[in-house]
């Protein structure tokens, strides 16, 4: 088959790593796919730009939230100057743009595999209670607030400590009401209203990466437990698990909402009780873990888009270990100069 040019963002493999490099590695590892990875970067020093054995070519992109038209034009330029058949956006901040402009992107001849805008909005933390009820899972005591008076009432009712969260991004722990107020102001300034106040629940933090096909079926899912995390809360070591209750919750969500595209389910599990904490509508940074245990989710998306055969099974073994490590790359200034001056390497 002809080579497929796949645009991947989130190639910032730093201390808070983006998912892009892992997604790109996964695509290269599918023996039946001929994939040419096009890195979509937002900074000239994103490490993926320099990893030419993973990212074949990289382009600097405008911020999609700042100027949608400029972003579409950039995609059009890449498509015609180099080649771009599919885009797999991997960053939170890009997803509102990509879900909103799916038709415009399709009109450029570029395919995506994303939830609809309605589906995307579903996973806002202010909608978590509705989802939890629909897919029969618990959530921590939760209040959606839009004023200090509501925040005060919510903290009083739920009891300290609480988590104070933005509707889509960021979460802070508050041990006192004063801390909750400070977090509330910070979240409102950065992300706007509403703010979510959530009670603390206890148990083991477990996560699932999965892909829905848009018709209610899974294109694979892998559950993990983070064993060791960094000071930013990012996984450093982890282990695959098979928690049937959590797998059911993920499958129920994808079936119930006909979710299309990747997602990460964050849960707290206490015995048989699974608390749904958050649903991220993108690949997590540890996505390569799933590929490493035989469930190549990015490749399954490409296979689904091009109607190629899917693997016979999406099964994997529990008890497989994931260990992240750092590496260094030494190169000359040429590539840095080129991407700085020309916007592509």
């Amino acid at each position: 088959m002809a080579e497929i040019y796949v645009g991947i963002s989130g190639i910032n493999a730093v201390d808070n790593p983006g998912p892009g490099v892992g997604v790109a590695r996964s695509l290269h590892e599918d023996p039946d796919l001929k994939v040419h990875v096009v890195g979509l970067a937002y900074d000239t020093q994103e490490p993926g730009i320099y990893m030419d054995w993973v990212i074949n070519k990289a382009f600097i992109m405008p911020y999609p939230s700042a100027d949608a038209e400029a972003y579409l034009q950039r995609l059009h330029y890449i498509k015609h100057s180099y080649g771009l058949d599919v885009v797999l956006p991997c960053l939170d901040a890009e997803l509102p743009f990509f879900t909103k402009y799916q038709h415009e992107i399709a009109a450029l001849g570029i395919r995506t595999f994303l939830p609809t805008l309605d589906q995307f909005n579903l996973r806002g933390k202010d909608r978590l209670a509705d989802i939890a009820e629909a897919i029969q899972v618990s959530i921590p005591p939760t209040k959606v607030v839009t004023s200090l008076a509501e925040l005060h009432r919510a903290v009083e009712r739920i009891g300290l400590p609480v988590m104070v969260k933005g509707a889509f991004y960021k979460a802070y722990k508050a041990y006192t009401y004063q801390e909750a107020v400070a977090h509330y102001h910070k979240l409102v300034a950065e992300w706007g209203y509403p703010v979510i106040v959530q009670g603390m629940v206890f148990g083991e933090e477990m996560n699932v990466v999965a892909v829905g096909d848009g018709q209610g079926e899974l294109l694979g899912q892998v559950g993990i437990k983070k064993m060791w995390i960094t000071s930013l809360g990012k996984i450093w070591t982890g282990v695959t698990i098979k928690n049937e209750r959590m797998r059911d919750v993920t499958a129920n969500f994808i079936r119930r909402y006909r979710w299309k595209g990747p997602l990460e389910m964050e849960c707290m599990v206490d015995g048989d009780t699974v608390y749904l904490i958050e649903i991220n509508p993108r690949f997590p940074a540890w996505s390569y873990f799933a590929t490493g245990v035989g469930v190549n989710l990015p490749a399954n998306i490409i296979r689904k888009i091009y109607q190629l055969p899917l693997p016979a099974t999406f099964d994997y073994d529990p008890g497989k270990l994931y260990i992240r490590y750092t590496d260094e790359l030494v190169t000359d200034m040429q590539m840095f100069q080129k991407i700085t001056t020309q916007g592509e390497n």
Binding site: I224, V239, I241, K242, G319
Partner: peptide, 17 residues
């Protein structure tokens, strides 16, 4: 549980060892 001869025990439901 996955148990080996040396007494290492892994719980695949929770990831605890």
């Amino acid at each position: 549980l996955a148990i080996n001869d040396e007494g290492f025990v892994f719980d695949p439901t929770t990831g605890e060892s």
